[in-house]
């Protein structure tokens, strides 16, 4: 059966009502860049669909040391208007202009690996996800949002409405390694946020994309970095540790073997970027 209804609610309330009515039978799309290819190819055959383009969930605001990004903010707007440089870099490394004009920040959380290049940056920035359902809002740390490949903690009546993150206090790095310089799926994506004080790493957050069922943090590598002087030895050890914490896969872009080889290379490069910046400051 082909699509019976395509709803374009004009408010969050209207969207939640539709979600309450159909529950899991309602396919929710935002920019359509993940769902539409599957529908076009006949892989996905939804009957009831809701598009979020007109819900007005695309506010981007800064307050109380936080940045709040509406779920349907396009990646182009993130690239052009985000107050956080790491997110601009991540947006620039995601897809191409045409797709960034359509794809959304919220939608990026639902982009299966090796896609999801903005989500990796959000993870390194300790973002939280606002889920809104019929019972109201709840906030989930992004690090606990995913439960597996294409699965997450959301209830059937909930929507991702916003992503909130603290304005970064430390230094950040982002490297996406793909087969081309732009518009390419990742072999591995690395995002890092380090707070360095008095020559020592006080706080470390390291996130990887395209090397697991969803973007993932590397707590053991972070522990190696924390308290270190970000020396070449510490960087190498953290990079090797991160390679042991990921769970890469084989696809048309790269083999599991190659991804695992590339993780320490690109983690080390990202950390060195920060070390050099730190040394220069």
């Amino acid at each position: 059966m082909s699509v019976q209804n395509y709803y374009l609610p004009e408010s969050l309330g209207e969207a939640l009502e539709l979600l309450a009515r159909y529950g899991p039978d309602l396919l929710v799309i935002a920019g359509g860049t993940v769902a539409m290819p599957l529908i076009n190819e006949g892989v996905s055959t939804p009957v009831q669909v809701m598009g979020l383009r007109r819900t007005g969930l695309d506010e981007m605001a800064r307050s109380n040391g936080n940045v709040k990004i509406g779920a349907t903010t396009t990646l182009t707007r993130l690239l052009e208007e985000s107050p956080v440089p790491l997110l601009r870099t991540a947006a620039r490394n995601t897809a191409a202009w045409t797709i960034r004009n359509m794809g959304t920040v919220g939608g990026n959380l639902f982009s299966p690996p090796p896609a999801g290049d903005v989500a990796v940056a959000l993870l390194a920035l300790d973002a939280e996800v606002t889920l809104t359902g019929s019972g109201g809002e709840r906030v989930v740390p992004l690090a606990r949002f995913w439960t597996g490949f294409m699965t997450n903690v959301m209830q059937a009546d909930e929507l991702v409405t916003a992503i909130t993150l603290p304005v970064p206090t430390g230094k950040t790095a982002y490297i996406k390694y793909g087969r081309k310089q732009a518009h390419t799926p990742a072999v591995v994506t690395v995002a890092a946020h380090l707070v360095v004080e008095g020559g020592r790493v006080q706080q470390a957050r390291l996130a990887l994309g395209a090397v697991g069922p969803h973007p993932l943090r590397c707590p053991q590598a972070e522990a190696v970095l924390t308290g270190s002087e970000l020396s070449e030895d510490a960087i190498t050890e953290a990079a090797q540790t991160a390679a042991g914490e990921c769970d890469p896969f084989t696809d048309a872009i790269a083999s599991e073997w190659y991804r695992r080889k590339m993780v320490p290379v690109y983690v080390a490069r990202a950390l060195r970027q920060i070390a050099q910046e730190e040394a220069a400051s």
Binding site: G32, G51, T98, I99
Partner: peptide, 9 residues
Amino acid sequence: EPMAACLLP
């Protein structure tokens, strides 16, 4: 704005 007509309902 450039957009992909194939992805646009």
